[in-house]
Structures are given as C-alpha cells and as structure tokens.
Design a protein around this nucleic acid. Structure first.
Lengths: 170, 170
DNA sequence: TTTTCCATGTAACTCGTTACATGATTTC
DNA sequence: GAAATCATGTAACGAGTTACATGGAAAA
C-alpha cells in the first residue's frame, strides 16, 4: 500500500516509464525506500488494471519499447485517499533488528562489546550513504531527513548501551 | 530468523509449551515483538525437525495434551550462532510508514496538520501501552527500553515537522 | 569483444498472516 | 447455557524477493 502510494505520488509529479521509475527509486531513494524492479512492474500493471494510470507505448528507433504511465483522475483520487490514510496512521515495525539485544547477557561481555562495535560500524556506513544521497524537491526531502534523524538517534542509543555495558561488572 | 532466535532464547531460559510461549510473546512482549500463534507453532515444529529442540508430550487429566519444548545442545549452538549474527548486524527497515510525509505538500496545509495530529495521537497511545508493559528480567528489558526510546524520538521528530509546517506560508 | 545499459517481464519461492477446525474445561 | 480459556494445528492466501529470460545498443 505504501508502495502504491509512492508510485502514484511519483507519477503525479511527472509521467514516466517503469525503468526510469525503478532507476530513481533504487538510486536516489535507495537510502529510505525498498522497492525492487519486479515488484514495481507488477504494481504498475495492477495500477493500470485498476484504472489509476494510463499506459502509452512508445518506441524510439530500435530501442526496447517503453510503457509510459500517467495518472488518471481516479488515480489522483486514489492517491489523495491513500495519502490521508498514511499521514494519519502510525505504527512502528516490531521485531526490527534487536532481538539479539534481548539476549546479550547470554554471551561474554567482551565479545558482546566487540559485536556491538561491528554493529556500530554498519550504522556509520549507512549514515554515510544517507549523507551522500542527492537533494530532493519539496517534501520528498523530508524522507531523507527522517532517515538521517533515525540513524542519529539509533547511534545515540547504541552508544548508551555500549557505555552501560562496559561499566557493569562481568 | 529473528523469530527463531527469539524462540530459542526464550526456551533457553526455561522449557515450555507452545501455548505459554505465544501467550507470553503476544502478551508481555506485544509492544516490541510481532509473532502470531500459527507462525510460532510452525517454527517450533521446524526447530524440532532441525534437532534444536526436544519435544515431550504431557497430558494433565482430560486437558488437551501439551508439547513441551526444551533446548538441545545443537539448539544452544544455533542460538549462539544466530545471536552473534544478529548483534553484529544493523539494518533499518526502509519504507516504514512515512511515504505519506514525502507527499505532504500535495494537500492543503490545514488538513495536513490535522492528519499529523491524528498520527501524533496514535503515537501517544503506543507510548502509553509501552509504559504499561510489565518489567522483564535482564537484557530482555532492553527491548522495551529501546521501543520507548524510539517512540520518544519519533514523537520529537513529528513535532518538529508539525512546527515547521505550521510556520511556513501556505 | 566483452561488459554494461536499456526495458520489460515471468516463475518459483519464502515468509508470514488470516481464517478456520477441534474439543474439553472453567468461568460468568 | 453461553462465552472465554486451554492447546494445537491446517489451508488458503498475500506480498515481496530472487533468479532467470530476452534482445538490441552503447561503451570499455
């Protein structure tokens, strides 16, 4: 549902074909969005079948033909509907990645600290990637800002855990 | 994989049957973990087939028989393996719930602010539930603390977005 | 000349959920 | 007497991923 909203929102800004769409999502938005090519093509088909987008095939020379999608009136309506639902809702993804944290005390303190340092480096790598992400127009940029904000706060939390742990007796 | 780690970790603390396990997870841990009964039963079967747990059936009177699971040596080894992988890794769930944020500017400022207020209330409700969650032993408690920390930081972020938006011209 | 890019898809698979089935037993 | 609790599962479904297929064109 978020993915449909995303595709409708992007197509609303300007009509494009699937390849360009997925290239943009997997490129410039890869830091905060996960949408693979087959899923995108599948959803675009579905959206066309639902009448939310119009398809127009174009062929430039001998290149593989493009299917250019553009929002219909009912597509705009669906976008507005999904947008309202999404903005009003809030749900944290449970069971994210820290089940391990719940059982840290099952292993040696020194090794646990080393593992958490590795985790910390992965986090830093992701922060780095996010900072090198290209600038976006308007509220699209909020997505990236949020991602950066979350990574920052996760780093702060991890550091308090590491600190607490290194102070406690083995 | 996180779910297997969770089940192994809980069974390591003390052997139980599926019903009690799922009752605990869906009750005391419901704030930070999502694991439904059928999934749990399915995974317990799988874990037994993999030799990570031993099954012992007991029947009390005319009650439905219980299958009590207890960790084997290879189960403990698998737990240790998964724990190390999980602690060292880090990955944020992408496309969480704020695709809508990316398209806020597609709707009227006043309505957007109202929708975000609704979102804020959902957030507060979740914070409330988390604060009423029972205390856990040892590092299990860290899971809940993290959840509370994340909710707090999400609230702070949402408030900056609301503030920024209410200051900007329509 | 081999790799990468363009452009679209299909098929098989994994993982998890929802809804349902069963049947005795305690609680209201 | 009806509803909730105990205790385990099955079947159908949905959403998304990976791996693969195709085939020309541009770049290295």
């Amino acid at each position: 549902m978020e993915r449909i909203l995303l595709l409708l929102g992007l197509l609303r800004q300007h009509a494009t074909h699937g390849y360009e769409l997925t290239a943009f999502v997997e490129g410039a938005m890869s830091a905060c969005v996960d949408l693979k090519k087959p899923t995108a093509y599948f959803l675009l088909d579905k959206m066309a079948a639902s009448g939310w987008v119009m398809v127009q095939e174009t062929r430039e020379g001998n290149r593989p033909p493009r299917k250019t999608y553009s929002l219909t009136t009912s597509g705009e309506a669906e976008f507005q509907r999904l947008l309202r639902i999404n903005l009003a809702a809030f749900s944290l993804p449970k069971l994210s990645n820290d089940i391990g944290i719940a059982f840290v005390d099952a292993i040696d303190k020194a090794e646990a600290l080393a593992l958490l340092q590795t985790r910390r480096e992965h986090l830093l790598t992701q922060m780095n990637q996010t900072q090198h992400a290209p600038q976006h127009a308007g509220s699209l940029q909020l997505l990236i800002e949020h991602q950066q904000y979350v990574l920052n706060s996760e780093l702060a939390w991890l550091d308090t855990v590491i600190l607490r742990m290194s102070q406690v007796a083995t």
